[in-house]
Design a protein around this nucleic acid. Structure first.
Lengths: 193, 193
DNA sequence: TGTACATCAGTGAACGCGCGTTCACTGATGTAC
DNA sequence: TGTACATCAGTGAACGCGCGTTCACTGATGTAC
């Protein structure tokens, strides 16, 4: 059958969006293409009408994860009184909500240890995204020079991703909460003066 | 053929040791059993004379990773002047050497984001190990109560693991070094005050 | 002391399943005439 | 206006490979007699 004008583009976006959630939720090589397509009421064969390979899809899926997460954090910021932006970002990033929702959250926390083992093209793309976000976020950090602010931002960002990963790895909900709270208190004190 | 008394035990240990390196190096489901055995000049069929399942092997392999890493950090400590132990641990954990050697390093940094997705039995075992090590290390941290020292230890440990994961994910060696140095300076100042 | 048998770490073929990718095909709609 | 053909998103069978697990078998050595 013939489809309407924007149909193909819409389908493509649905695939990327679903894949983005699933790669963050499942990690590894991400969802099997058959499953992914079935969830969207499509069949696996059609996949290659949209993407050159699974790897290409995963790259786009991860980029989408960064976009979604940044938007979600920026939204938190918008509610801040002046100077309180960073505190709200830390609180949201280290919230129980983010912890319970890897599929909709930060790709670095969701995939931290796996990125290093991705194929080169994927690593380069992830690296580009991380640099972009770090640069934007660095302005909120304390520090005399932009160099110093960026260093602080790297420490905060990697530290929060580590705390979130560790919390998610912890089976006991009480301990999870303890880790998140400890990290939240610590980074707030360290960077929100 | 019949083998000497300790032979089976030795073979088993060789398998665990090789698997421990490979799961940390490759992540995911770890090495394929066929490859793992071939590297030890054995065939895949014999594997099940030693282990109930691959999952059981992985559990033992990860525990071995914790043991090796703790020993390696304790060795660093032994060279410290009194009070300087933690500083040496931070420096070793965040060294370029550790960064370049995931297969021989900390399992949490190597597998951070994947642990949360392991089968329950594996998660529980990893959790036990982490608690054990955190408890031992907490004594080196500042804090008025043991509660507070443990919280600090959680923050330091998860932060360092996050920094190491991020550094490993970074393709450019200069940036890798920058991340490690920034984290090293920061945590040293924060906890070795 | 010599012989028959038991033991058991290791072997390698086979099974079954998951999964990425390819490819000939479908069929509703747009277009050319 | 009606008819023949082109288009192309989506379909589903098939291929090839990787991999965990099973199982009947091997063969050197220890043990029973």
């Amino acid at each position: 059958m013939r489809y309407s004008a924007g149909h193909k583009k819409e389908t493509r976006e649905r695939i990327v969006k679903a894949a983005s959630r699933q790669i963050r939720g499942q990690g590894g090589k991400g969802p099997a293409i058959g499953d992914l397509m079935k969830n969207l009421d499509l069949t696996h064969g059609g996949f290659y009408k949209h993407f050159r390979s699974k790897e290409q899809l995963l790259i786009e899926a991860i980029v989408k994860g960064f976009d979604e997460t940044e938007a979600w954090l920026v939204e938190a910021m918008s509610k801040a009184e002046p100077g309180g932006e960073l505190k709200l970002i830390i609180e949201r990033y280290l919230s129980l909500q983010h912890c319970a929702n890897p599929a909709g959250g930060c790709p670095v926390a969701a995939l931290a240890s796996e990125i290093a083992r991705y194929p080169r093209a994927m690593r380069l793309e992830v690296d580009r995204e991380i640099r972009k976000r770090i640069k934007r976020m660095a302005g909120l950090l304390p520090g005399a020079t932009s160099e110093e602010r960026e260093r602080n931002c790297l420490v905060l960002f990697s530290g929060m991703a580590g705390a979130l990963s560790l919390a998610r790895a912890t089976p006991d909900p009480e301990s999870r909460k303890k880790i998140l709270e400890a990290a939240r208190d610590f980074y707030t004190r360290a960077f929100c003066g």
